[in-house]
Amino acid sequence: MHLILASNSPRRRQLLTDLGVPYTVRLQEVDESFPAHLRRAEVAEYLAAHKASAYRAGLAPDEVVLTADTIVCLDDDVLNKPADTAEAIRMLTRLQGRAHDVFTGVCLLAGDGRQVVFSDRTTVHFRALSNSEIAHYVHTYQPLDKAGAYGAQDWIGMVAVTRLEGSYYNVMGLPVHRVWDELAKLGFPLAV
């Protein structure tokens, strides 16, 4: 079996590399809108499965495509990637001093038709941040490609994240512990 990573995320690439799972990147443009009635983990799972469906026709029988989508939820509001720096500042202003949930939905779609969709949740606690700290982060690190306008592996993770309940790697964009288990269930040849 051969794993196809359908993601342009450098963090997901690094996590799979560190996990020791060989993969090839294959990219396609996929619409990332979702039905308004979906909530929290449902959004992440829907988007992961939707992305995988775009690869279905092109998969060889011995290939497995991995798609993922990470969202940040403050209460029931989904905070996706900010459109610009002003929106990034607004998002971080809302998150500061509060706990929020990060959901990563994952879909593993095998060329033989088997499919598994799951999500993982991590609760992230942020300390209160000053306006100047938020502005510094947004202008220095340009987190426009990150759900919730932040990366836990960045400067803001070092100064703002006071506690995590769940997987740190899930916040980075891939719950590798669950991916490992699900690949094993699919019969993917893992290195141990």
Results as ranks from 00 to 15, higher is better:
Arg114Asn: 08
Asp112Gly: 02
His125Asp: 11
Leu79Ala: 09
Glu32Ile: 07
Ile71Gly: 13
Asp76Asn: 14
Thr123Asn: 01
His136Ile: 00
Asn131Lys: 13
Gln115Asp: 01
Leu27Tyr: 03
Thr70Arg: 10
Asp84Arg: 04
Ala83Tyr: 01
Gly97Trp: 08
Gly58Ala: 13
Asp62Ala: 12
Glu133Val: 02
Arg56Gln: 15
Ser119Tyr: 07
Tyr46Trp: 14
Ala44His: 06
Tyr137Ser: 09
Arg40Ser: 04
Gly105Lys: 07
Ser119Ala: 15
Arg127Leu: 02
Arg94Gln: 15
Ser119Leu: 03
Met91Phe: 15
Phe34Ser: 05
Val102Asn: 11
Lys81Ile: 10
Leu74Tyr: 14
Ala83Arg: 15
Ala128Gly: 06
Tyr55His: 14
Phe126Tyr: 15
His37Ile: 07
His37Leu: 02
Thr122Cys: 12
Asp77Met: 12
Gln96Glu: 14
Glu32His: 06
Ile89Asp: 01
Arg90Pro: 00
Gln96Trp: 02
Lys81Arg: 14
Asp112Trp: 12
Asp112Pro: 05
Gly113Ile: 09
Phe118Asn: 02
Asp31Trp: 00
Val106His: 06
Glu87Met: 13
Ser132Tyr: 04
Val117Ala: 03
Val106Gly: 07
Arg40Gln: 14
Val78Ala: 11
Asp120Gln: 14
Arg121Lys: 15
Leu47Asp: 09
Val43Glu: 02
Glu32Gln: 11
Leu59Pro: 10
Ser132Gln: 15
Val78Asp: 08
Tyr46Glu: 02
Thr122Ile: 07
Thr122Asn: 05
Asp84Phe: 01
Ser130Thr: 15
Val138Gly: 06
Tyr137Leu: 09
Val78Asn: 06
Ala57Pro: 03
Val138Tyr: 05
Val116Ser: 09
Tyr55Arg: 07
Gly113Leu: 09
Tyr46Ala: 05
Ala60Met: 11
Leu74His: 13
Leu59Thr: 13
Ala83Ile: 05
Ala110His: 15
Gly113Ser: 05
Asp31Ser: 13
Val138Thr: 06
Ser132Ala: 14
Ala49Pro: 01
Val78Cys: 10
Asp112Cys: 11
Phe126Ala: 06
Gly97Arg: 10
Ser130Asn: 05
Lys81Glu: 09
Thr85Phe: 04
Glu133Tyr: 02
Ala44Met: 06
Ala99Gly: 13
Thr93Cys: 00
Asp31Met: 00
Leu108Asn: 11
Gln96Pro: 01
Ser119Arg: 07
Arg98Leu: 08
Asp75Cys: 01
Leu66Met: 15
Phe103Leu: 04
Ala86Leu: 09
Ala68Met: 02
Ala54Val: 12
Tyr46Cys: 04
